[in-house]
Design a protein around this nucleic acid. Structure first.
Lengths: 338, 338
DNA sequence: CACTGCAAAGATAACGTTCCCCGATAAGCA
DNA sequence: TGCTTATCGGGGAACGTTATCTTTGCAGTG
């Protein structure tokens, strides 16, 4: 139950004043080298740990950043969190993570909680249905830096870390086309999701480039829910002119598509090719394995934390930046040439 | 950039002393009802938020708890975290989550970081290879309550939240036996994992009860790694007397087993039945869907947080408790009668 | 009318740290 | 010798809150 050692304890022990100890510990120039050595040595010996609460109080900074993501169970977010933690810890910051569980109200509550625990800044990925941004404006009004990652909104003037969704989708669809598929469905995410819409744009452009007609019947929006998605895909497969390939918004949806196809006894990829997005581990666990679009998620997390901390430390002289990462096509069995 | 409102501001505005405001806000009995109303009202109006740093300083409590788990990408841990956040937030605590990524050194670093940010207590799930517990003893020596969840160690005298692994495994194997399978392999986790060993015990007992001979060749340990597991299962299937069923330590391993079986063109469950553990979503996404052992993960998280906070608030009068949850057998396609 | 008792609220110290301002000592300079 | 100037440290306030101790004012009592 050892009481925490404080600066005062060290001061008393060495018969110097607390101010001196404080300055010695941060290697201030106006303290004798010898004294500094002595102070640092005893601090070490007594296992002195600075009291963060006191520090926060006087500096009005907590050296902690908040992270709010839809769901840490998603591969994307738990991986991004690893990247965030990585640079945060390297730069001396603590991470407070929370999940909105895709619910707008929870996102609000989480931001409020973050403000209460007075983080120095927030990394946010919007919940599925968030379309009112007053909670974020409030943060900015309070002077709290915000960085958006992946699930961004154009209306917000913050730093943003994203992947080139349009190019990624274009590449996926182009790949399917080159492999000989012509009737390609897009299993989109919820219509509110800006990233899903960007991918739709890429899907569209690929069709235009290769002069393949677009068919609205092949565009279906799905909630991020396995069972509902399976049903949507079954409907798709019952069309008079069913698709011969599916480009899915995420690997999870791609898996659902595969399940649906299997219940209809379709062969993959011969009868139906599938490609997903994210390059989640699950994509390579299925049989056949699922082609996907890879994003550098860990690095994106690192970048988000870096941008946030830069802004925290530079203050209002910092101008929000948008970092766009490029994707990589991962070819697997589910999209082989037919 | 609105400066934070403090108790002093309210005091100045109402021409009363800060002490009065403080007491009024916490509804102290020795403050006039009318004054209390007034204070609370203006606090509300000015959107007063107590300064946590100041509070921590005077109370020597931070109202935050640390969570260290192997990987938030695992369904178990992200779900448990939801439960933890749920009761923590209900009881006024902030959660600081971090991942050891199954690495012992990271677990150490994380505990150190937690001590630095002076959390009031820690919920921990051990990394795969952790077998030296000095970092945990240090925490306890500092007077920091610790609760272990799922990945526990018998050597540690802390509260523990676990599932009855032995009974769960027994039920899984018994189910396979009742469905007509006789040569059941156990795809165990790493040998260090106590929960894997408990499940082995259940596996063993079921064999004894039903008088089925045990065969060491049917017991293989796997890292928590898809590809390696696939290889292990392929080896298993090449045995002179291959298994007709597999009980996997986790649903992830079960999925790997299924992939391996499919490359050998085995029919599931006719040629090889499979049952997993955890009842992860992935288990129902595969085709055929995978039977599994369900654990009340969210509730376990809630319980862990509850126990921890109880201990934090009761101090040393609290005696560590172990909460044992029961599992539930979820029957799906992969273990149908042959 | 003086005294007691009590309700209500003010004053002050304390938590651990930093930072600004000042004091002491000794060296350098004219 | 008397002055300035570094060099090195000390003193004390401040950050926002709570807890302990006092003070104030007023009603009730005999």
């Amino acid at each position: 139950m050892s009481e925490q050692v404080t600066i005062k304890d060290i001061a008393r022990l060495l018969n110097i004043s607390p101010s001196t100890v404080s300055r010695a510990l941060k290697s201030s120039a106006e303290i004798n080298k010898e004294t500094q050595r002595l102070v640092k040595e005893t601090a070490q010996r007594l296992n002195y740990q600075p009291n963060m609460a006191a520090l926060s109080l006087v500096k009005a900074k907590t050296k902690s950043i908040g992270v709010i993501v839809p769901n840490l169970g998603y591969y994307f977010f738990s991986t991004a969190l690893q990247g965030i933690e990585d640079t945060a810890s390297k730069r001396g910051y603590t991470v407070i993570a929370s999940q909105s569980l895709e619910r707008y109200e929870r996102e609000i509550k989480n931001t409020k909680d973050m403000m209460r625990s007075s983080v120095d800044g927030i990394i946010l990925s919007l919940a599925q249905h968030t379309k009112d941004y007053t909670h974020i404006f409030q943060l900015q009004q309070k002077g709290l830096p915000v960085v958006l990652i992946d699930r961004i909104a154009d209306e917000l003037n913050t730093s943003k870390v994203i992947v080139d969704n349009m190019a990624g989708a274009f590449g996926a669809v182009e790949h399917l086309i080159k492999m000989g598929y012509r009737r390609i469905a897009y299993l989109a995410g919820p219509p509110e999701l800006i990233i899903s819409n960007r991918r739709k744009e890429g899907y569209r452009l690929a069709h235009i480039k290769y002069k393949i007609p677009l068919d609205d019947a092949l565009l279906v929006h799905c909630e991020i829910d396995h069972d509902k998605t399976v049903k949507e895909v079954l409907k798709l497969l019952k069309l008079p002119q069913p698709p011969d390939a599916i480009f899915a918004f995420s690997d999870r949806l791609a898996v659902a598509a595969m399940v649906a196809a299997k219940t209809k006894k379709l062969r993959i990829p011969e009868d139906l090719a599938i490609i997903g997005f994210n390059d989640e581990p699950i994509a390579s666990y299925t049989s056949p394995s699922i082609s996907s679009i890879h994003q550098p998620i860990f690095e994106m997390g690192q970048m988000a934390a870096g941008l946030l901390i830069d802004q925290i430390e530079q203050g209002k002289s910092f101008t929000p930046q948008t970092k766009l990462y490029t994707t990589r096509l991962i070819k697997r069995e589910s999209s082989k040439k037919r």
